[in-house]
Design a protein around this nucleic acid. Structure first.
Lengths: 217, 217
DNA sequence: CCGAAATCTTGGACAAAGTGCAAGTTTGTA
DNA sequence: TACAAACTTGCACTTTGTCCAAGATTTCGG
């Protein structure tokens, strides 16, 4: 049943090819002629499929252009990453986020093109925002579940959801800064743990500035 | 010229009444019969206006239901708030955010209904996410500008945008937690500075846990 | 190899969102 | 009153997205 979906049958190969064709046509058209010109009809013409087939692969035009929102099921890898960073969960969340983004097997060129698209047209920012929000929500759920099963690693009392929310907020705040620097700096800035830790520390500084005597006496 | 827009002429009174009618019809219908049933036509019928008029007031159906995204122009009040909290800008950002949300003169009942709508249908969460993202972007821009003009208040070297991004990330992280608690706790939880400071301190704790001694290297 | 079953593609009809425009109506103002 | 600005409305149009039925393709069992 799932065999035909994951292994290399003719059907599956064709399906991937079609999906790729649509995706590339969508992104390419949007980049070349602008978002407004990238109608579903134009994309279909470019990709050589019918309108029906288009909506058979993507539920909306936007998802064809911007990709399906990162919906990562809580897999074993995420679990292992958190286990390995039990003492510094913000860093763990950082790696889980990278894992979630990386495991989407997206064409690198397509990904870059998408960044350019959003950067060029501010009216499209909400797509990016929605995707980020979805990823964040997933991370919170994952971490809250993990925290409930690992009480020893917790730093805050009460509902695990609270600690999860704050930890993810811290991680994504730092991540957001890195992304901003990455985009502003011509893209040659590395996204690594060191930079992430520096951003995290800086955020703890500006956050702690408003709450004297609460964190470390 | 602007007189007729802001003062209490007949025209302006009518305009506000129509806007309110559309807004209430939109939210009411969505709540009562579900989002799917709240078509533009139905809203217009309920509000007693034509389709043309509808789009004359709201650029999209979603904005009628969920409200125009909080677009706050950097006004004098925001400036004064930041001035008053130069030593703890995260708190200042908190108050500016409250100001931006509060100055939208939204009907309280409509606001509550909107929260219920988003809570009921998770598929609608991206509207909320986009609105939050827009507010955040505005806050970052405002704070970066303020920081550039008040170097003495800064805590981080380099681009003011960096400090602004991190400070806003910290503030909205804490704010997000408060909002989550507010929604989870039947809505009888106060949103005040004390709770905000506590959330901020907690976030500094979980963030600082992952970056020992990295801030003053 | 052959036929049945599942899957995929396609075209067409349809509801609804959103845009543009021209005509008519109401309000503000001299 | 007369005129200009702003508002409302109906209509035609493009586009997105859904639904369905008919035909083509792939898979699989015998």
């Amino acid at each position: 049943m799932d065999d035909s979906r994951s292994s290399g049958g003719l059907r599956e190969r064709k399906r991937r090819a079609t999906e790729n064709a649509i995706e590339e046509a969508a992104v390419g058209l949007a980049l070349r002629d602008g978002i407004a010109a990238a109608t579903v009809e134009a994309i279909c013409r470019e990709a050589g499929v019918s309108r029906s087939t288009f909506f058979n692969y993507f539920p909306s035009k936007e998802q064809a252009i911007f990709g399906r929102a990162a919906e990562f099921a809580p897999d074993a890898t995420s679990e292992a990453i958190l286990d390995a960073h039990a003492g510094e969960l913000a860093v763990g969340v950082f790696y889980v986020g990278l894992h979630a983004l990386g495991s989407q097997r997206v064409n690198t060129e397509v990904a870059r093109a998408r960044v350019a698209l959003v950067a060029a047209d501010p009216a499209l920012a909400h797509h990016h925002a929605a995707a980020v929000a979805k990823l964040e929500a997933g991370l919170v759920a994952l971490l809250a579940d993990w925290l409930a099963r690992h009480p020893d690693a917790r730093r805050l009392p009460g509902d695990p959801l609270v600690e999860a929310t704050l930890t993810v907020a811290a991680a994504t705040g730092a991540g957001r800064l890195m992304m901003a620097e990455f985009l502003a700096g011509a893209g040659d800035i590395a996204i690594d743990e060191e930079r992430f830790r520096a951003a995290l520390a800086a955020m703890a500084l500006v956050a702690g500035a408003g709450a004297p005597g609460a964190s470390h006496g």
